[in-house]
């Protein structure tokens, strides 16, 4: 039992990080039908903005964090939208998929070439001390990551449903033309979505890098898992990504422990396929109209 609890808590902590990355997928999809295949790299890169601040420029962590926030919002939010997405949006989903894959390569190899090919240690934001609960050893860091992610996603949900700007963003996501008629500044709302996505990526990066270590190639595995989590949870719901992320984190641990370590990555994939066939809108998603 203690063992099961241990697996569950570790899985939830890892899963909450997947959830943070997955939320970005759902946000961008809702706002502008963009599938961002560079999402993993979006989570990898901000850690290096911080490292540039602390290691190269010699700043303290807080200053470096602010610097990283600005870089992330400008580069991964504003420029990503204006330079990559806007010109391609009229041509449908596919060119954007390919372009974001290419963008991922650019980000990955730029970090490798201009910063380092080596994994970099990254300061832990939370204490790595452990506490024993019901026989399971749990680190403060795990709990803190879980709570921070839950809080961030809940706040986002509240913002989207309870504030005027948030409701305008949702209206834009649901029906652009109607939102426009109702006087919503659609362009600005979409920009907000991209900025929120960038900020969430920074947050995921800060939480994940002490565990994953900052490395150019991190984005590949995170991106794929987050993508699966988003589909499983429901591509058009913020809370779907949360559930999907947590579920994948837990399933990964339980299947590795009780079924097969060699096939541990297979179980999330099987879940993905089953979900698509049985409930294509995802666990918490709402059905979209059939496009054909």
């Amino acid at each position: 039992m203690a063992e099961f609890f241990q697996l569950l808590v570790s899985g939830l902590a890892t899963g909450s990080i997947y959830a943070l990355a997955a939320v970005g997928f759902t946000l961008l999809w809702q706002a502008s039908k963009v599938i961002n295949f560079a999402q993993g790299e979006f989570v990898m890169l901000p850690a290096f903005f911080i490292l540039i601040g602390t290691q190269v420029l010699g700043w303290n962590f807080i200053v470096a964090l602010l610097f990283a926030l600005i870089c992330t919002l400008v580069l991964l939010g504003y420029f990503f939208k204006r330079v990559i997405i806007d010109p391609m949006l009229p041509h449908g989903v596919l060119p954007i998929v390919i372009a974001t894959i290419a963008l991922g390569i650019v980000m990955r190899d730029s970090v490798k070439e201009f910063y380092s090919a080596e994994a970099q240690p990254f300061p832990a934001v939370f204490s790595e001390e452990t506490v024993s609960v019901f026989g399971a050893v749990i680190s403060v860091q795990d709990i803190a990551i879980l709570i921070t992610s839950l809080a961030a996603i809940t706040l986002l949900q509240v913002f989207l449903t309870r504030t005027r700007t948030g409701r305008c963003m949702q209206a834009t996501a649901q029906n652009r033309a109607v939102a426009e008629i109702l006087g919503v500044n659609v362009k600005r709302m979409i920009l907000y979505t991209f900025l929120i996505n960038a900020a969430l990526a920074l947050m995921a990066s800060v939480l994940i890098s002490p565990i994953y270590l900052a490395k150019f190639s991190n984005g590949q595995s995170i991106g794929l898992i987050a993508f699966i989590a988003a589909i499983v949870g429901g591509f058009n719901q913020v809370r779907g990504a949360l559930v999907g992320g947590l579920l994948i984190g837990v399933i990964d641990n339980l299947s590795a422990a009780y079924i097969s370590a060699e096939y541990r990555t297979a179980f999330p994939l099987i879940l993905l396929i089953i979900i698509i066939l049985v409930r294509p809108q995802g666990l918490l998603g709402t059905a979209e109209e059939r496009t054909v």
Binding site: Q6, L7, S10, G11, A13, T14, I17, I208, I211, Y212, S217, N218, Q220, S221, G249, D252, N253, L254, A256, A257, A261, R264
Partner: peptide, 8 residues
């Protein structure tokens, strides 16, 4: 690239 070694 495995992140979580709890089960192992």
């Amino acid at each position: 690239g495995q992140a979580d070694f709890a089960s192992d």
